[in-house]
Nucleic acid binder design. Structure first.
Lengths: 340, 340
DNA sequence: CTGTTAGCGCCTTCAT
DNA sequence: ATGAAGGCGCTAACAG
């Protein structure tokens, strides 16, 4: 049926072991037999069965990536960094997409097992307290990208300082003279335990406080991630008697919704309303959206690199690496009109 | 170390075979021993080793997806259909991303082997003549999505009639009174063997011919896929003494570049220039781009369904299914100004 | 240097 | 109904 190492051995008139050695070009095999084996391999068009290798090696030669909504632009970009970096390695990429809380929990508990995978990368899903123990004690290396938990110092992490990002974004609006600044974000509390909207809110608050601007609850709209919901929330907010003159959106996708709402309300951007997003996804440049840039691709790349390092040397101490964030000025923010 | 079927057997005081039977809840095991085994499994927190199962079963429980630039919006959307459908099955999704001709060739020849995967899905990469034999003779089921080859009738395929799509798009512009219609596309000949730009060009030509409009080579700009290149090509085309009054872009992403070029040239859309794209990716609605909608998500979904069907019943006859295409009218096309 | 042997963990006959 | 044994294809340790 399928040609095995045994067929090759027979054809090359050597023992199995020798063939295996040639395949793993490890030990010293005499050049002559080595050639004989290589010939046999070529002639039979032989390819070692990966499953058998895995079983024998006790490794899966696989990296599992758990990611929420892998189709969202920011996650896609992270994944691209992951894929490109992993492609050069011997590891296959197995994708676990999370779109429901149930999936999250299933994957969190089932995927990180040595029998399943050699390493797991968790993107944008911060562990909850009840996940910590299991993850910390997992027998497979785990790296967190854009996710974190205070007690998980034993894991490699690539994080983004969203508090700082939120601060800078808000600060930018404040410097432009805005004092009525709205914030449109995801739901703060969900079973997924996304932390970015929360952290950015924290930064937003700190910036307001530092500027002596009172916090207004009606200036915070939270809802399902996405353009449509952001548009709805913003439309509501813009109809407040004392509407914001600037809005900070927790993602560029949501910023698009904010821009749509501005149009709905016949407000010019940035003259009547300043808008700043977060992520700097590809379309943002096209739109001319002012935003906070994250190094999305890089974060995925670094995550894989860290994972590969642990795989190569399990004794390597865990690292927590922070990715920088950067304000990208474009055309959707401007000085506030004279305050009424 | 890791707990195996043997530990369970010992604890439950049964033979290995019985444990295996319980796991695969197949044969009839007496309810009492069955419970004993289940208890032991629970107590030991036992999970069968997938690699061992695979080797024993001779299956990989894996579906390989070969896709070019999986970060492009259209491919992402197809992948979403794939992932969502596959998630409910027992199969894992292994991603092979193609960004270079070399990768394409490597994956085309290495991935479709029974030892590697139980089924492969090839997206948007049409086989070349020299691929046909290998793919047709592969010992693993293959399904083509948005890809095709006349001699591969033995494979399941989900195709899009790009000739028709190109025709409809062009026809739409013609009906609006345009007679100077440009076409911006990918490079027609690349080692990837993408066929969409070629097929849409064919539809474009047919439509022109049917309307008695002469074909002008300087109205066709081809270059690397992407906004930037499309913008450059369009800028060139718009500086022709007899510039087009309408442009058909082979993808929405490229249509964005066309829109940018229009801005560069101080042309209003749609008053001075009509633009139609292809795909109807998410951002198109935001932009208000007139475009040809493809059922991207559905195509991925159907592809997986076909694959799962063959996997369940290898004797099922291969199907070639065409996905419909639809003209989505928005705000970037309008009646031509009086022709000069 | 190279052939032989013993597993890796599970599934599946084959007897009982 | 259930235990025992053989094998999936490969790697690695052990002799020579």
């Amino acid at each position: 049926m399928t040609t095995t190492i045994r067929d090759v051995a027979k054809r090359a008139r050597v023992g199995l072991g020798t063939v295996s050695r040639v395949i793993n070009d490890s030990s010293q095999v005499s050049e002559s037999t080595r050639q004989r084996v290589l010939n046999a391999i070529a002639e039979l068009n032989f390819v070692p069965n990966p499953t058998a290798r895995r079983l024998s090696l006790g490794k899966t030669l696989t990296i599992a990536v758990i990611v929420p909504w892998f189709t969202r632009p920011a996650e896609v970009e992270r994944l691209r960094g992951v894929e490109n970096t992993l492609a050069e390695s011997q590891y296959d990429l197995v994708l676990y997409n999370v779109e429901t809380p149930a999936k999250r929990d299933t994957y969190f508990s089932d995927v990180p097992r040595r029998e399943n995978t050699d390493g797991v990368m968790i993107i944008s899903l911060s562990p909850r307290d009840d996940d910590v123990e299991r993850l910390a004690n997992s027998n497979v290396p785990i790296v967190l990208v854009d996710a974190n938990h205070p007690s998980l110092t034993s894991l490699n992490r690539v994080i983004v300082d969203d508090v700082a990002g939120g601060y800078i974004a808000t600060q930018h609006l404040i410097e432009l003279g805005h004092r009525h600044i709205g914030y449109i974000s995801d739901l703060l509390e969900t079973p997924f335990n996304f932390t970015s909207s929360r952290d950015r809110l924290q930064g937003y608050r700190k910036a307001l406080k530092a500027a002596g601007i009172p916090l207004r609850v009606d200036y915070h709209g939270q809802g399902e991630h996405g353009r449509y919901e952001a548009r709805r929330l913003t439309n509501e907010m813009l109809q407040l008697p004392d509407r914001p003159t600037a809005i900070f959106a927790a993602s560029d996708t949501q910023a698009l919704g904010v821009l749509e709402a501005a149009q709905d309300q016949r407000l010019r951007v940035p003259e009547d309303l300043s808008v700043i997003g977060y992520d700097d996804i590809e379309i943002s440049e096209y739109i001319g959206l002012t935003t906070m840039r994250q190094l999305l691709y890089e974060s995925g790349k670094r995550g894989v690199e860290l994972l590969l390092e642990v795989l190569a040397d399990p004794t390597a101490p865990p690292i927590c690496e922070a990715m920088p964030t950067e304000l990208i000025l474009r055309n959707t923010t401007a000085a506030a009109a004279r305050t009424s």
